[in-house]
């Protein structure tokens, strides 16, 4: 009886191993394709029916950093990094401020604020891109990085739901005890709540830092023809346009790999915080 149970378990485990391996290959294959293509030495347009390059080379990577007249990859990379850093700091601060306020402070029309914020958060930002462009233009901010930082971080306060859920799970008794000890609400926020909220801080930092690396819609309309201020996503997208794809496809692959590496590393490192963030306070509660 026990033997057959073990056998059955082994068989089912074996099946699962096989299944998972196959599925992993399916999931990972396009990425492998991308990486392999980035090392191709032979001249090809687009993907092809083989994965392993006939001729291995680093040229595509080297060219990204040396041949910068048309495709100024290092500059774009730097731009994106700068934008991501600033946007990340501003977003994180405003998300934490808003969610802490909604979660732990009690004031008049708090409920109304939460509902309004919730509804506004439903509105996809790019629907208003033309208006945003002209608001920025009125402030004389188009075609530069500050505009992007503002656009990526201005609405961040609306994404308070997840971190509010997290703050909700921290026992109220902590605040009360601190208040009795004479701490102001400001001190409570900085000295007590924030240190306890590492997972949610990391989650917010992670999501707001990776955003600018992927968006190209807003970047496209704001940057227009100012190529020196392009972000990486916009630049890569441009390399796939009809005019460029024939000459730059391999460099596109190399560029995409280079963006993916740091983000993937970051993501894998911070995975557990991400999970805690996505599942909200639920996992803890």
């Amino acid at each position: 009886m026990i033997k057959s149970y073990k056998l059955r378990r082994n068989i089912s485990n074996a099946i699962i191993y096989v299944l998972l391996t196959v599925l992993c290959i399916i999931w990972i294959l396009p990425l492998v394709w991308l990486i392999m293509t980035s090392f191709r030495g032979e001249d090809v347009v687009y993907l092809n029916n083989y994965i392993i390059p006939h001729e291995w080379t680093f040229d595509n990577y080297i060219k990204l950093f040396t041949d910068t007249t048309v495709v100024n990859y290092p500059r774009w990379f730097l731009n994106t990094f700068i934008v991501a850093c600033f946007a990340c700091v501003i977003s994180t601060i405003s998300v934490l401020m808003v969610s802490y306020t909604f979660s732990r402070l009690r004031f008049k029309s708090r409920k109304k604020f939460i509902n309004i914020g919730f509804i506004l958060g439903m509105f996809p930002g790019f629907l208003t891109m033309v208006a945003i462009y002209y608001v920025l233009k009125a402030m004389n901010l188009t075609q530069n990085l500050i505009a992007l930082i503002i656009v990526y971080s201005a609405g961040a306060g609306l994404n308070f739901a997840i971190s509010k859920g997290f703050f909700d799970t921290i026992p109220r008794a902590l605040d009360e005890a601190a208040t009795i000890d004479g701490a102001t609400k400001n001190q409570i926020f900085w000295r007590i709540i924030l240190p306890m909220s590492k997972p949610i801080v990391v989650y917010t930092v992670l999501t707001s830092f990776t955003g600018p690396w992927a968006d190209f819609i807003l970047a496209k309309i704001i940057m227009g023809d100012a190529r020196d201020n392009y972000t990486i996503a916009l630049g890569l997208w441009q390399m796939l346009q009809k005019e460029y794809i024939n000459d730059y496809f391999l460099m596109f692959c190399a560029g995409a790999v280079l963006v993916a590496v740091p983000i993937t590393a970051l993501f894998l490192k911070m995975q557990k915080y991400y999970v805690e963030g996505v599942t909200g306070g639920a996992v803890k509660g």
């Binding site: 048309v70 462009y133 233009k137 188009t142 075609q143 309309i221 227009g224 023809d225 190529r227 346009q241």
Partner: peptide, 21 residues
């Protein structure tokens, strides 16, 4: 002189003529 493909050019002129070439 700034690089801007012909099809893109028209679209960009329409989005913001004052910032276009």
């Amino acid at each position: 002189c700034v690089a801007q493909g012909e099809s893109d050019a028209a679209a960009n002129v329409k989005t913001d003529p004052s910032a276009a070439a």
